[in-house]
Design a protein around this nucleic acid. Sequence first.
DNA 1: CGGAAGATTGAGAGTTCTCAATGCCTGTGG
DNA 2: CCACAGGCATTGAGAACTCTCAATCTTCCG
Lengths: 234, 234
Amino acid sequence: MDPIIDKLQTLGELPAADKLLLKTVLSDVRSVAARKDILREGDKPTNVHLVVSGWCCRYNIVAEGARQITAFLLPGDVCNTRITLLRQMDHGVGTLTPAKIAYIAPSEMDELLARPLIARALWMAGLVDESALRAWTVSLGKRDASERVAHLICELFVRLGTIGSALANGFDLPLTQEQMGDALGLTPVHVNRVVRHLREAGLMSIRNRTVEIADFPKLQKMASFDPGYLQTIG
Amino acid sequence: MDPIIDKLQTLGELPAADKLLLKTVLSDVRSVAARKDILREGDKPTNVHLVVSGWCCRYNIVAEGARQITAFLLPGDVCNTRITLLRQMDHGVGTLTPAKIAYIAPSEMDELLARPLIARALWMAGLVDESALRAWTVSLGKRDASERVAHLICELFVRLGTIGSALANGFDLPLTQEQMGDALGLTPVHVNRVVRHLREAGLMSIRNRTVEIADFPKLQKMASFDPGYLQTIG
DNA sequence: CGGAAGATTGAGAGTTCTCAATGCCTGTGG
DNA sequence: CCACAGGCATTGAGAACTCTCAATCTTCCG
């Protein structure tokens, strides 16, 4: 669970007592297979869920078979902060890879929120999520296919970097091209073509579920990627 | 300021003392001309801003001249809830029409947040905003141009209805087709064609900045619009 | 080895964009 | 009261981007 604590601390250093409480609270961790739902649209969850390891996503189903992924959740991300205030989930959350999910009971959540610094870190994490969602919206609205793919790769590279899961010039990408398409509003066929295009342009390549970023500055520029919205620096 | 209080109460009835406090706090109201910025990307605002009358929007600038609107803010909506926790605005907020904006000082905001029901209502309003943003993302990712326009009209119709600003079968729409395009990820030319298409299909029409919804159920169906995410029922 | 899922490529169709011209409506100044 | 300018809406034609359908190839796993 240490990565979680590190993640929360990117938004501010926590005292030892808070860390201890976090470790205690994050004891109910369950393994979930790949491609399973953790929360479904319409659920009224009482527990708060937190990704300990593996990749998950938020998604909405539109018509028959059409799924829009609105966020990738990486280790340290919270699936449903205080959603209990609303009537029900307006979207689903599911695993993409095998994952470990911490279940936080309402009473434990109250304990966490009673600690000002933890509450603050959680609130900030929520605001960062919202910023990321806004950036996602901007991508879908104003960037073409190549720019969208480049932007996603940049975002994931930076986010994985902050939790120590990136390599020097790339990272493991456990997504199929279909899942990337669901996130980017593109068909898997077109994702494939765009990835080839980016490879031929010498920007990045994907082989064997591994992204290799050949020229990050250029990639960042083509995607007009500004990492500010991720608030990676406390 | 009464519409604001009504708006907050759609999420839960407030006691008289809370209403009084709200009225007191919402005393610094300033008029802003159309098409002016209230907050810019990079600002570090200390005040919280709330729309009292008029239409505003959140937006991001991508490349030279390309603007993506990510939300329309109607009377009762908050521009920057607790944004002070983050380093800076990751997006701009501007007026679309002449508007009145309430400026809430940090100390007043603290007072408001000290009232549990108001704090709760504000938090819920934030969650609803996020739901709406997610729905917006889904539109941009998975709906075609006609469906996007239809979905936007449905959303605005419902939201304006909850603040008593809709007619029986339509509403005033103070947006140019260019602004609609900025929100929907379409060119103004294409927005125009789509609106004509919807009119010819007998679903809705726009004349003189007024939307007339001819067949709401059909419009809703074509947009696969489900108002649940707006949480209009407490 | 066979099967299944995913990646890759081709060809043609459909949607949306760009560029450009024209029409409409409103407010302003003569 | 009328002419004019500016902003916005409308329409046309061709270009560009992305999708659909389909076939083939690769990889992984039982």
